[in-house]
C-alpha cells in the first residue's frame, strides 16, 4: 500500500468521524470544533490530490474565517444544550436517516457506474501559479463579479445585524 492510500483511509475515516460528531453533538461548541477538524481533514484530502492552493484556502477560509464567525455567534448567543426540546424526536430522526440511506445508495450506484481515469497524473494544476493564471485570464469576469457579491454580503450583514437606532 502506498502512502497515498494510507493517507486517504486515515483522513477519510477521521473526516467521517468528525462529521458524525458535528451532526450529533448536543453542545454547539463541540459541534463547531468537530467541524473545524472536519475541514482540516478535507484540506489533507486536497493535498493528497496535489491541490495545494485549495488546501490552503480551505484552512484559511473555512477553518479560519467562517468557523471563527460561527463560534463567535455561538458565544454571543450563549446557547445551552439542546436537551429541552425532545418531543417529536424519534419519527423525524427515523425519516431523516431513511432519507439519508436512500440518498447514499443512489450516490454510490451512480459513482460506481462512472468510469473515469483512475490514475492521478503528476501535474501542477493545483499550484498557485496555474490557479492565478486561470483566474486572471479565463475567469476574470466571475472573479470581479464575486467581489461585488462579497461587497453586497458585507453591507447586507451589517444592516441585518445592527440594532435599530431610534
Amino acid at each position: 500500500m502506498s502512502l497515498e492510500i494510507i493517507l486517504f483511509i486515515v483522513l477519510g475515516v477521521m473526516g467521517i468521524a468528525s462529521g458524525f460528531v458535528t451532526i450529533t453533538s448536543k453542545n454547539p461548541v463541540v459541534s463547531a470544533m468537530a467541524l473545524v477538524f472536519h475541514f482540516f481533514m478535507l484540506a489533507g484530502l486536497y493535498l493528497n490530490m496535489h491541490a495545494q492552493f485549495m488546501a490552503v484556502l480551505q484552512v484559511l477560509v473555512y477553518a479560519g474565517a467562517i468557523m471563527v464567525l460561527v463560534i463567535f455567534v455561538i458565544m454571543l448567543l450563549n446557547l445551552g444544550d439542546e436537551e429541552k426540546l425532545k418531543e417529536k424526536f424519534s419519527i423525524r430522526t427515523f425519516v431523516a436517516v431513511l432519507f439519508g440511506i436512500v440518498l447514499l445508495i443512489q450516490f454510490v450506484i451512480i459513482f460506481l457506474a462512472s468510469s473515469g481515469s483512475n490514475v492521478l497524473k503528476e501535474s501542477n494544476i493545483g499550484s498557485v501559479e496555474m490557479i492565478g493564471n486561470e483566474l486572471f485570464t479565463n475567469y476574470l469576469f466571475p472573479f470581479e463579479a464575486i467581489s461585488l457579491l462579497l461587497l453586497a454580503a458585507i453591507i447586507g450583514s451589517v444592516i441585518l445585524a445592527k440594532r435599530k437606532v431610534d
Binding site: 455567534v73 464575486i146 457579491l149 462579497l150 447586507g156
Partner: peptide, 13 residues
C-alpha cells in the same frame, strides 16, 4: 468558497 463566505456572513446575521 467565496459564495460560502458571503452566505456565512448573511446567515449568521
Amino acid at each position: 468558497m467565496a459564495v460560502a463566505a458571503a452566505e456565512a456572513a448573511i446567515g449568521l446575521a
